[in-house]
Simulated assay, not measured.
Amino acid sequence: MKRPLSDLPDRLQQLPALTSLRFLAAMAVVLFHVPYVLPASVGLKPLEQGALGVSFFFVLSGFILRHAQAPQGFDTLAFYRRRAARVLPLHYLTLLTWTWLFFDSWGNSLTEKINSGVANLLAIHALFSGHLFTLGYNAVSWSISAELVFYALFPLLLGGRRAVWLFAILAIGMLLLPQDAAAGLERAFQGFFYFHPAARLLEFSAGMALHALWRRFNPGEGMATRIQLGGLLALLALVPASAGWPVHLRNLALLLPFGLLILGFAYGGPLTRLLSHPLPVLLGEASFALYMTHHMLFRLLDPHLVALGPAAALAVASAAAILLSILVLRLFEQPVRRLLNRAPMPSHSRRMAATPVPQGGVGG
């Protein structure tokens, strides 16, 4: 059923259940990193496919940014300013913290460290091939570099059906890409389909296209619940089934369950109301800090948790990471964001900057 114009939610409407889903995606990434950053105390692989949480973040980011912005009266400067205030302060805080804690123990040469450091300072490190850049310093920040590319392109995709067309072109291109060509891209750029913004633009544009579908239909709570459950079942089926697929085809296939989950929880229903309670929403709001800080925190905690045993060590480390993320949100992210958004700007930009924005992807 087409959603009547009178029933369309105001663009300022919050979608708290989607904010809560960010916490689940962030925890998936946290659990994926456990064998790398808690090798002595845990050493297990509690969620081997947890890196897919980043794919969900990118789709959600496109959906939420499109939801929060109307093409009419869109202020590009205000948008860029808000996005920079949202992601860059924590990126720089964690970059400085990592440098202070781990720079001396990093085995690369000083020249390589400087090259990677400059790329990280400019937040362009996802554009360069090799783990020196994509995983240098605070390893998870490569996704922030990719998000900034999406933010730069967002004003160009906002009007009309540009995002829908871009998604269609990218999806068909990925589907028809010869395996030799895909392998060549991977040789030219290590991990191209995982790290490079040009490859991950598929997911961001899918999120924007998904929002166009959400605006068009209003299926009711019963159907929303079925869509949610269908997304969950599709995720449980496709994640193991696609484990051996090429990365670009797997990213394309997983748009189905991720899209169904985002649509279902944006529509409503009992499960949506459950995830709209204050506690899961708070955890979702703190998910960006959780994502950006857990890697370093776990490395620091690892030698001190060995005596607890794997299960207890994982529980303690996870609880500490969640607590730290809430503290970082309350004591750093939110105050700094308010301060940066308070500085003088043109009157129209001030109105745009005062707009409450639902929380979305990796960078919120």
Results as ranks from 00 to 15, higher is better:
232 L>Y: 01
157 L>W: 12
151 Y>G: 10
186 E>P: 00
195 F>M: 08
41 S>H: 07
178 P>W: 07
86 R>E: 04
35 P>Y: 13
254 L>N: 11
240 P>L: 09
158 L>G: 05
84 A>G: 07
216 R>N: 12
248 H>N: 14
157 L>I: 04
157 L>N: 05
249 L>R: 15
268 G>Y: 08
243 A>P: 01
281 V>M: 03
15 L>H: 01
277 H>T: 14
113 K>D: 00
208 M>A: 04
325 S>H: 13
116 S>V: 06
240 P>G: 13
320 A>N: 03
197 P>I: 08
145 S>D: 07
201 L>I: 14
152 A>M: 07
185 L>C: 06
283 L>T: 10
346 P>M: 00
9 P>A: 05
331 L>H: 12
322 I>L: 09
163 A>M: 02
46 P>M: 07
6 S>P: 04
240 P>D: 08
335 P>S: 08
290 L>P: 03
172 I>F: 15
282 L>I: 01
153 L>T: 15
103 F>Q: 11
153 L>R: 13
328 V>A: 03
345 M>Y: 03
360 G>A: 01
189 F>W: 14
129 S>L: 02
3 R>P: 01
326 I>T: 07
78 A>M: 09
245 W>D: 08
292 M>K: 00
209 A>Y: 01
323 L>Q: 07
268 G>N: 12
259 G>M: 04
183 A>T: 07
26 A>W: 03
291 Y>I: 08
353 A>C: 11
62 G>F: 09
167 F>L: 11
133 F>L: 00
299 R>Y: 04
159 G>L: 06
114 I>M: 10
304 H>W: 14
4 P>Q: 08
71 P>I: 11
111 T>M: 09
1 M>N: 06
220 G>M: 06
261 L>N: 13
127 L>I: 03
67 H>N: 12
277 H>R: 15
255 L>K: 12
86 R>C: 07
279 L>C: 05
32 F>A: 05
194 Y>P: 01
322 I>E: 03
344 P>V: 04
132 L>M: 05
351 R>H: 11
167 F>C: 15
242 S>P: 02
320 A>Q: 07
294 H>V: 06
338 R>P: 00
313 A>H: 10
343 A>E: 02
194 Y>D: 01
195 F>V: 09
